[in-house]
Simulated scan of single mutants.
Amino acid sequence: LLARLLGERQLPSLLIAPTTPHGRRVSQYWAEHPGLPTLKAYDRPVEEWKAELFNDTPASLTTTLGAIAATGSLILWPTREEPRLMSLVPPVHFALLKASEIRDNFYQVQQEYAWAQGMPTNALLVSGPSKTADIEQVLAYGAHGPKDLVVLILEDQ
């Protein structure tokens, strides 16, 4: 599905986190299916490839910690392997969400992860693509993040 969506959107490359389980799986699938868009690995400090990341990286793939059904929000939990820039910089963000990790509300998430004992340093709630109407009250997408957010829901076996 991911390969098909990249093709339909005519995206020439996809940024992945190669050391994560989904990054390894995508790399393996790509190796077995030549002709797919180029994979880019987020495997070095941003200072070494900042221009390429910001100017020539059309799409990325990240995981989610889960989602909140009441608000339709994804919970992103950036890590060293999958930093926040992966979901913020490319114009298209593909987010993997396990169906079993969808919770009813934010309170349930806080309880399950014991956030009262210590909040994570960088948990993010994303309820859609970036947008603003600050300029002349005209709605614009992609102002402070991706213009297109695609959620891929993975069913548990």
Rank of each mutant, 00 (worst) to 15 (best):
L61I: 10
G72R: 10
V46A: 05
T38C: 10
W77H: 13
L85K: 00
L74D: 02
R44W: 00
R84Y: 09
G72A: 13
P83A: 10
E82P: 03
E47G: 02
E48A: 07
N55Y: 11
L76S: 11
G66E: 01
S60A: 15
G66M: 01
A67L: 06
T64W: 02
R80H: 12
S73H: 03
R44I: 00
M86P: 01
A41C: 10
L53Y: 08
E81W: 06
R84D: 06
L39Y: 06
F54T: 09
Y42L: 03
L76D: 03
A70R: 13
E52W: 00
P83V: 11
G66F: 01
R80V: 13
I75Q: 00
D56E: 12
E82D: 12
I75C: 09
S73N: 08
A70H: 14
R84K: 12
P37S: 09
A41S: 11
K40L: 15
L74R: 02
M86R: 02
G72T: 10
A67E: 03
E82Q: 14
R44K: 14
R84M: 05
D43N: 15
A51H: 10
Y42G: 00
K50Y: 15
A69R: 14
R84T: 04
G72H: 09
T62E: 08
T38W: 09
D43T: 06
P37L: 09
P45F: 02
Y42D: 00
F54P: 03
V46I: 15
P78N: 13
D56N: 14
E81Y: 08
T64E: 03
S60C: 14
L39I: 07
R80K: 13
P37A: 10
E48H: 07
T38Q: 14
Y42P: 00
L39F: 07
T64Q: 04
I68W: 03
K40A: 05
G66I: 01
K50C: 13
I68C: 06
E82A: 09
L53P: 01
T79A: 09
A69Q: 15
